[in-house]
Design a protein around this nucleic acid. Structure first.
Lengths: 351, 351
DNA sequence: CGGAAAATGTGGAACGTTCCACTTCCGGCG
DNA sequence: CGCCGGAAGTGGAACGTTCCACATTTTCCG
């Protein structure tokens, strides 16, 4: 190799110097480093991985960069991966199966040692195939696959938190706009139903079909308000849907939280914005990322061969869209308009 | 190699089959493909890149996954890269120089053939070094480096659109909450000043120091309202800052757009949310991504050796935070409270 | 002072591909 | 019939590292 020749040493020595291992005299070390810097030499990862038969790379496949949810998960992933001595590369497929498969293929050819699939749209058989090939963990999507670990937040518990919060504020007619076939939607729905039952409100369970989108929230709310007694609180399947719920309520002149309380899920940046100020359920995103890496590393170090599914605990973030229901506020829709700022203080929250 | 042995052919033939080139009899092709599938064989990118001396990989370094701005830029990048026969891998450094450098190093060792740096926090010398090594394009950050191309939106023009819009609604006291040292902030400030002057409003120019954050917008607004005549419109350096502006205005009982109009920049998802409904300047994000790839490919194909800086044209997206100023609305702060929904229709917008 | 052990350095095989030069086989053509 | 050319397939060098076995020099210790 060029550096070796110019520095007047063997390529083996250059290798030692570049990796900073072995016993190398200060003099030669300097010389090699000098020449390397001058020539802009940089070790070739391909050659190294070929002979070492490992890459030190973890592949992270993101279904969707648009979803800010994943940014913090990645933070956790990167931090933990770095701590464990791995480097990460990311790929994404824009929620499109074809291009997601392409990205996956790239990682596999690159011989990443482990794979984190964040809410992929890939069909289960593709995921199973990946899992058979290398340690794989699924994030924010469940699986029953042998060999594929997963990390998800406990959606059932999270939905429970939302309902508990509302119930303890005094709400009884708590409805749910669900997330359709979205990841975790089923569990959130189930958690909602269970918590209602636990509170003795089983008879008041109402689920409107929705989706993880603003429109989904809007449509679900429209359905809820179209007939039956108006709910005093709505638990939306996620924050985006909650935004839709808020819009739909505003369109009908209903005030939040005076007339209707609203709770979201995910605690996205949207929820924190003052204009929205949404009470929501938070997933510990960085932790999710860290746990995913841990699962991978356990397998990579041969410390585990059994499949594990990690559930992390969500927490409730109370903001301005929840308050106690108004006393006997029945049948009083469409009256809104005047500023109800004071109403927020009707009756103390009874936690 | 294993596949070759089991299929009873030479490794050269396996190579031909896997790449789908050359004259191979249908019989052997089948046999090789069969064995490969059975063994789960997948070509090793490292070995290939070693001998071919190319990887077909484009590296994309993202400063910040949290900024939804980049998601669509990536969409454009991926689409164009795929069209040109390249694959992409992403890296990110969470706005932290150390880890960004790490990610960059990974791409370089992996021998990506070109580099797209999206608003990196890396110091210019590091970027220059990368540019000397392989085709590099900077996105959403300007440079005066030889050998480093760039794609940015025309911030000066974009700020001009915002001011023109406000001025043509009849606003004269248009203030600007700037983006501090953020990327493009200088240009947006300059564009604001120039447009004001063009409109003969040079004497009314007012710039409050801010940043690309909600707090920045809030603080800047506080400064604007603390003294001097109240502006009838505020142009914020970006959407997040605009959110802060809206908060600060709401805190003081000022209604938008009745008392003050607000314009943001970037057209993030936040701006589109009904509760925010922000008039803002849109950057053609996918186009930015596509152009970046084009610049790279031109260099990779040896079609260009000179440095190019591409400016793409922003557009204005009018939503609900801008309206004509109220007639002679002076000194009427802190009166708010009643629903001013009707006020929006004061005087037709005169575009 | 002799020899063992440590420190320092080297050459060459191996990693899994691609590519090139080459061989073999076969059909067709003059 | 002899030859040519294309189709089909092969062997081995090369890519840039790491690692291993080994060689040489220096240091240390009894």
């Amino acid at each position: 190799m060029d550096v070796a020749r110019r520095a007047g040493v063997s390529k083996s020595l250059v290798s030692l110097v570049m990796r900073g291992v072995g016993n190398v005299s200060e003099e030669k070390r300097r010389r090699v480093l000098d020449v390397a810097a001058r020539l802009g030499y940089r070790p070739n990862a391909a050659a190294r991985s070929l002979v070492r038969r490992r890459t030190g790379l973890l592949g992270v496949l993101l279904s969707d960069l648009h979803n800010p949810f994943f940014a913090e998960v990645i933070d956790g992933i990167q931090a933990e991966a770095a701590a464990q001595g791995y480097r990460t590369i990311l790929g994404t497929g824009d929620r499109e199966e074809r291009s997601e498969a392409r990205a996956l293929e790239t990682m596999l050819e690159l011989r990443t040692e482990g794979l984190i699939l964040a809410s992929p749209v890939l069909p289960m058989r593709t995921i199973a195939a990946a899992g058979a090939e290398l340690p794989t963990v699924l994030v924010a999507r469940r699986s029953s696959l042998a060999d594929v670990d997963s990390v998800t937040n406990d959606d059932v518990a999270g939905a429970g938190l939302a309902v508990e919060h509302l119930a303890s504020l005094g709400h009884r007619r708590v409805a749910h706009v669900d997330g359709g076939r979205g990841a975790g939607a089923l569990e959130r729905r189930r958690g909602y139903v269970r918590a209602m039952e636990r509170r003795g409100l089983g008879a008041l369970v109402r689920v409107a079909p929705g989706s993880y989108t603003e429109d989904g929230g809007r449509d679900g709310t429209a359905a809820l308000l179209a007939r039956g007694p108006r709910p005093t609180a709505i638990f939306a399947a996620n924050d985006l849907a909650a935004i839709g719920v808020l819009s739909a309520l505003a369109d009908r002149g209903l005030r939040v939280p005076e007339d209707v309380s609203v709770v979201g899920y995910d605690n996205t940046a949207l929820a924190a914005v003052r204009q929205v100020n949404l009470t929501t359920v938070d997933q510990p995103r960085p932790e999710i990322g860290r746990r995913a890496v841990s699962l991978l590393v356990e397998r990579l170090h041969g410390r585990r061969r059994t499949t594990r599914h990690v559930l992390v605990a969500p927490t409730l973030v109370v903001r301005g869209t929840t308050a106690p229901p108004r006393r006997r506020a029945r049948g009083r829709s469409r009256t809104a308009a005047s500023d109800g700022r004071a109403a927020r203080r009707n009756g103390p929250p009874q936690v």
